Simulated assay, not measured.
Amino acid sequence: MMKRFKTAAALMTAGAMVLSMAACGSSSKPAETAQTTEAAASSAAETGKAEATEAKKEDGAKFKIGVLQLVQHPALDKANEGFVKALDDAGLSYEIDQQNASGDQSACQTIASGLVANQNDLILAIATPAAQAVAGQTSDIPILVTAVTDPEDAGLVEDNKKPGTNVSGTSDLTPVKEQIDLLRRVLPEAKTVGVMYSSAESNSVLQAALAKEACEANGLTYLDVTVSNSNEISDVVNSLVGKVDAIYCPTDNMIAAGMATVSMVANENRIPVICGEEGMVDAGGLATYGIDYYQLGYMTGKQAVEILRDGKNVSEMPIGYLDQEKCALKVNEETAKSLGLDPAAVK
């Protein structure tokens, strides 16, 4: 009797194991089905977008383009203007939503979210923080960036030569070494340079590192000087009085927007400022050897036309660079005279 009971128990246990194994085996099917359904939905969405874009090309409907500019200052404004001019020159039919975050990072996030929600066909992001805000909101809508020094370093693309993401555009990498060489030539007696930038901007950190390397190559010592918000600019420049013989400011958006303050304090204390771009020189800096931001924006606009009208894949579009051999020297003659320098000698 006991033996029959043990045998029955064993059979029941074995049956339970078989049922359990069958249940485990069947549980994978819903997951696989869910994954397949999700992949199919994603593929259908992409196909739908492609068909919608193709339909717009065929019936001449307007493309929707969103623009997020980090802050208003001459370099970024010119890039924006150049972008729009390229669209117009190509005869592209479009409507554009121009947004400016006024240097506010939280506003960048809010605006970026709105541009994505509005289902624009393409979004232009001007400056690194704006580009990072938009890229964090969508992996589907093509994004073009401009006035971004190194998109790869900023985490926007996998590789500047082949982005591999929904982001491409143009870099405003300036000839930092040549700008420090200019400082050395114009101010041969200078010994210490204040390298001033915002530590919150990755493009500025990169350029500052190049500037410090160039200072060392020129036998100059440097002070690393950072600001975290625009209200600190005046105090930071004042803190350099008596400590530096010149100031170098890269294409930093916070400094560029506050350049009038930088130049006012620096020029009053006879400290020459070598700048990353010509808009900063117009605002009172001494000189620069830099790129043309209007042409940079125009190059980005041509990329937009290739994506929207010609169907080019943004993920395979290399980051564009202006020819640095075409960089131009810009000197503020009034600033030179106020510093006791001969404008002709600066040129």
Rank of each mutant, 00 (worst) to 15 (best):
S198V: 05
T221N: 09
T335G: 06
S234M: 10
E268G: 13
A266G: 10
M12W: 09
E152P: 02
E81S: 12
T174S: 15
K302H: 03
N269L: 13
V225P: 02
L308G: 00
K49F: 12
A266W: 01
K212N: 10
S42D: 11
G284D: 07
S171V: 04
G311A: 03
N160F: 04
S139Q: 12
A61S: 15
S27G: 04
P142A: 05
D59V: 10
A75N: 04
D150C: 07
I307A: 02
S139L: 06
A217G: 08
Y321S: 04
C327N: 13
T36K: 12
E81N: 13
C24N: 15
M196F: 13
R309K: 15
E178Q: 15
E51T: 09
V67Y: 02
D59R: 07
L339I: 07
Q69I: 02
E81C: 10
C108D: 11
K337S: 05
K243D: 10
V237S: 04
V205D: 04
L308P: 01
A147Y: 03
I123N: 01
A39V: 13
V148F: 03
E32A: 15
C249R: 00
A336L: 02
N80C: 09
Y94P: 06
A50Y: 11
V18G: 08
A135Q: 03
T251N: 08
P250T: 10
S28P: 10
D59I: 10
M299Y: 12
P163A: 07
